[in-house]
């Protein structure tokens, strides 16, 4: 959270700076299968976020001593491009924030990927933030979920993530960067829509128990929309192929 000294008014006349209602997502666009070499990939735009996710594998673990003979291991690397933020030039290489985010995203996917099907293998997930505007770990996870599915990796569920938090005393969904910087609480959550179990949850700021419950309501409410967009992106991969060959005949 940035200093509160020059905090802008984030809610004016019951609306947010970008005109959204408190429970409104930014516009989301997802495209699957955008990278040729990857086994699965997806590109997401959520507001001004532009994020690529790619999946390689399952493939043999290297170095070999990291292999687990009972199941596959997941490796996850979240990183922000040096040019992705408005302020400053990000240094290359993983920083402490990126290492923590990579860890919690990996743990969320370990819950749904059927790891036992691929002993001694690894599945690599790469999330590259090309342009960041708040909520990148959540949008990156949503994209990575589509990338895994497009790689044909068996999963129990197509998971999604979005953040909710607090501005003043209002509980609000899907912060952009300005809201993120000056919010009173921020809480990214990943959900398995099949049973609404929580797979990733981080929070800092100030929330009462009631506000926490409200925030989870907003996340699960928005999840129906996000899930539908994820599935449409996967269907579109095949619809594209279908259109291509229909036109030829």
């Amino acid at each position: 959270m940035a200093s509160k000294a020059n905090k802008p008014e984030l809610i004016v006349g019951g609306k947010r700076l970008d005109g959204r209602a408190f429970d409104e997502l930014r516009p989301i666009k997802i495209e699957a299968g955008v990278l040729k070499n990857a086994d699965g990939s997806a590109y997401i735009e959520q507001g001004n976020n532009k994020i690529l996710a790619a999946v390689y594998g399952p493939k043999e673990v290297f170095p070999k001593h990291d292999a687990d003979p009972t199941k596959a291991i997941i490796r996850c690397k979240y990183s922000m491009a040096p040019f992705s933020s408005l302020e400053g030039h990000g240094r290359s290489g993983p920083n402490r924030r990126a290492i923590e985010i990579s860890k919690v995203i990996r743990e969320a996917f370990e819950n749904v990927v059927l790891l036992e099907e691929f002993p001694n293998n690894e599945i690599d997930i790469f999330i590259e933030i090309l342009q960041g505007d708040g909520g990148t770990r959540a949008a990156g996870l949503t994209a990575a979920s589509v990338a895994l599915a497009s790689a044909g990796i068996p999963m129990k569920d197509l998971i999604y993530a979005v953040s909710a938090g607090k501005i003043g005393e209002e509980v609000v969904l899907d912060f952009n960067m300005i809201e993120d910087n000056y919010s009173d609480a921020d809480m990214p959550i990943a959900i398995a829509p099949r049973n609404n179990e929580v797979l990733l949850l981080q929070m800092d700021g100030s929330l009462t128990k009631q506000q926490f419950e409200k925030a989870v309501d907003l996340v699960i409410g928005a999840g129906k929309k996000i899930s539908a967009i994820q599935k449409d992106a996967l269907r579109e991969v095949y619809a594209k192929i279908e259109r291509k060959y229909e036109n030829k005949e």
């Binding site: 919690v104 743990e107 809480m187 929580v198 797979l199 990733l200 949850l201 981080q202 929070m203 800092d204 700021g205 100030s206 929330l207 009462t208 128990k209 926490f212």
Partner: peptide
């Protein structure tokens, strides 16, 4: 109030 949470 809750000040921070982390699921692992």
């Amino acid at each position: 109030v809750i000040r921070a949470m982390q699921k692992g």
